[in-house]
Design a protein around this nucleic acid. Structure first.
Lengths: 226, 226, 226, 226
DNA sequence: GATGAATGAGGGTTCATTCAT
DNA sequence: GATGAATGAACCCTCATTCAT
């Protein structure tokens, strides 16, 4: 949990009732965003109070307002930063020069890697931003859309390569949405069942969505070959 | 949306600032719960105000407190009622005397049928209760667990019948969680893409999780046979 | 605690969700007043709720309003009933044909006897009515005034019999007030120190106010002779 | 009533719905406590509303909560401040190098001096805190206990000096409690009979409890000699 | 740049009280 | 006579936000 450690460091630097040292704006903004993500992830949007955020950030409330705007705007900043982090982590984890199933495999591993490293970011995005209503839910929906497109292109290209006839039962987008949703929900489930190592999660998903229950019960198993 | 219609009727009956007619307690409780679900689904737990709920219910605030308790408790009542409704709808939709894939198929259809009919209930359960923190998230998690168990038993029994060796890549619970999550997320996606008919959603999921992408790109398709 | 027992009896008579039997008005009023005194003594005027009183009385709220009026009026009824009870107990305990000190002695014993038997009444009068503000404090002040007059007449007549010159240092009323106050406060102290037998309290007061510390430290002691 | 005058000044300085000038926290806390004591003394704990207190203090409600806590805590602060004021006033008024009766005399004079100067404080302590129930009543009881101990030590030491045999009729603590109670009640009586000068009250008590009615009717009188 | 001081506004909750049956 | 059903009104409290230093 890198975010949390950095916040604590920021706090430690500062002795109580000591005026905060002048710091470059970028540093202050990072402190504040880190603190905000931490607090939002713990309490959700509505129960997170600006007072607490400012305490955790080691910065006075007026600074938050002056640097990052009101609560809504601050929350938006958090969501955007973490959205991008997450998307980039997944996108950069995919290697374009391997078969589609391996691409999917790498994408999933990167995703669960991110969730493990930035647990709080994931909680904010998945648990709280969606519930916080429209300005924010849209942001997360957009992220999800980007992910869905990534997967859709992958599957569709694999399909068209092999002449998959478009059928009512098949919809690149719909099924990509289903896969992305499954990945998200499994991440959620992981929060409450952390004993499972991260590679296994990706493996389950590959077996389920690449092979399907049918092949599985026949004894087939998907494994990454490289 | 049966609930909403009835609530509006209740409102229409009553002219503003007129004393509500005396009705038996059970009727009032239903009115209140219906109104609460409606308002919670629209605004979420924190932004829903007891004032608005009481107005929508056509009842004064003290009645709510007297019949269903404070806000937290009221929300709990909503969640429990809708949880049970949903679970029973799915469970009753499953016919036990058909092959596993058909059971899954019926379960999914019932699920999306419920989401279509009780849109607000679904929103409260999926979007808001999970974000509202621990007393409530647990309730929904419990619901999800019940669903996962249902699916797990289905798949595992199918697998063991055919001698599926337990492997690291396979976990009845984990994969059932993934499927349930996929179904949930697809329902969520459906809220923003309502043009897709409900049967198609179930079809996608069956194809994805029963056959897998691999079979799909080979041209295989799953269809319900009865 | 006679009052409490009677209330419990009244409650026991009534099975839940059974309509209260028709009873003569006087009986109902007694039930209500007993319950009110009990609840007021426990919670004070403001924290006592009409709901609780009606439950303890085994009677619905509208009955209370119809028989004994609103909360203020109800409290007034309580205070008046208990005031009179107390005053009559003390007055009737005094035997007019004995010397002044013995009259005082009997009065004090009657007073502490009452406090022991009607603990709740005393608490309502002394602890709560005085704090409840003017309509009620006056009532208790009036009671106190009657007590002071009783004592004053006693002492003054004793004094004038023996030619006590009126002096600045002496005021029948003031000193009677002091004695009455001492008696009250000792009763209050008794509530928290119930191990002392009631006769001893009266004895302390007699020794203190009849003989004074001065005589006491000289070894004199007052004892009732009859 | 120093407190009240200052509060009014604070109010006058501020025109309605104008932002209060920035003042150091300690000053505001004093203003708030003064106002709270004033309002509590007039209306009692339950009928005093935070709105009124904030108006009288010339400060908005959130400041009260931020500086002195919620209503209960605020009341506690008032009681503690006034308790200490009162106890210190009495203790500091006693001169340790004079005979016991003179010490008592000075203590009583200080007490009535305090009641005269801080009428509201006395009312809060004696009339309202005791009735407000357990967190607060305990505080006042503790104050009373400290006073009783003061008096007990005085009398007992005087008694043992002259060989007072411990007897059933004599209890240092009990009689001290009676004297303290008498003093309190006389202060209470004084509130409704303010024409009596303060020295006279102390004089009555000295004559009553030092000499006793018996000596008094014989014509003896106690007077301070110095 | 940085902050302690200050507040408007609004929400949850609970009574005492009364109607209609 | 007796009561469940119903509500107006008020109170405590908190929070996001801004001003003045």
């Amino acid at each position: 949990m890198t975010g949390q450690r950095e916040v604590l460091v920021a706090q430690d630097v500062r002795r109580s009732s000591e005026r905060a040292k002048r710091l470059p704006r970028a540093v202050r903004e990072k402190q504040i965003l880190d603190a905000a993500v931490e607090v939002f992830s713990q309490h959700g949007y509505h129960m997170a109070s600006m007072d607490v955020i400012s305490e955790v950030a080691g910065v006075s409330k007026p600074m938050i307002y002056s640097y990052l705007g009101a609560k809504e705007e601050l929350f938006g900043h958090c969501i955007r930063r973490e959205s991008n982090r997450l998307f980039e982590a997944v996108r950069d984890g995919i290697r374009p020069d391997v078969p589609p199933d391996m691409q999917l495999w790498h994408g999933l591993r990167s995703f669960y890697g991110f969730v493990a490293e930035y647990r709080q970011s994931w909680i904010v995005l998945h648990r709280h931003a969606l519930a916080a209503g429209d300005p924010f839910a849209k942001e997360v929906t957009a992220l999800r859309t980007r992910a869905i497109e990534l997967v859709r292109d992958l599957v569709v290209s694999a399909g068209t390569q092999r002449g998959l006839a478009s059928q009512a039962e098949f919809s690149g987008e719909g099924m990509a949405a289903a896969l992305v949703g499954a990945a998200e929900s499994l991440a959620d489930w992981w929060l409450d069942n952390p004993h499972v190592p991260e590679g296994v999660l990706a493996s389950w998903l590959m077996n389920l969505t690449w092979l399907g229950f049918n092949d599985l019960v026949e004894g087939s198993v998907w494994r990454p070959l490289e």
